[in-house]
Amino acid sequence: MANTKTYEEERLGYYKVLGGLLLLTVVTFIQPTMFLTDATFGVQMLIGTVKAWMIVMYYMHMKGEKLITATVIFALFLVSFFFVIVMIDVNNFQYGDVSHITSEITSAGGSSASVH
């Protein structure tokens, strides 16, 4: 870690990031009741991503690490690919209207429950 920053500068950096993260946490809390309430899930995940990015870049010192950044991006690409494909599959659930898995369990009866 060859850098030219002084101890004070680096420490200030840590506090700045902490401030940002705290601010975002507050946003997380007020969002569901204040704005964009139709898209809570998306907004929350977006905030999470921004927070994660800050942590990775500054607390985990990924800035300037080419090789490590590349490996992380590769891993994230794979995870997102898995997500996309599995979501495509679940959104095209075949014959979901008649399947048990997609609907509520109505008949209680445990392992001896019978179908149709």
């Binding site: 494909i85 495509i88 599959d89």
Partner: peptide, 22 residues
């Protein structure tokens, strides 16, 4: 190799769209 696992599921009840992609 990471992107093709679904070809084990061609008759498993996976959706036809996913089958085609895989």
């Amino acid at each position: 190799g990471y992107l093709v696992w679904g070809h084990h599921l061609f008759t498993s009840g996976m959706s036809d769209v996913a089958k085609t992609i895989f």
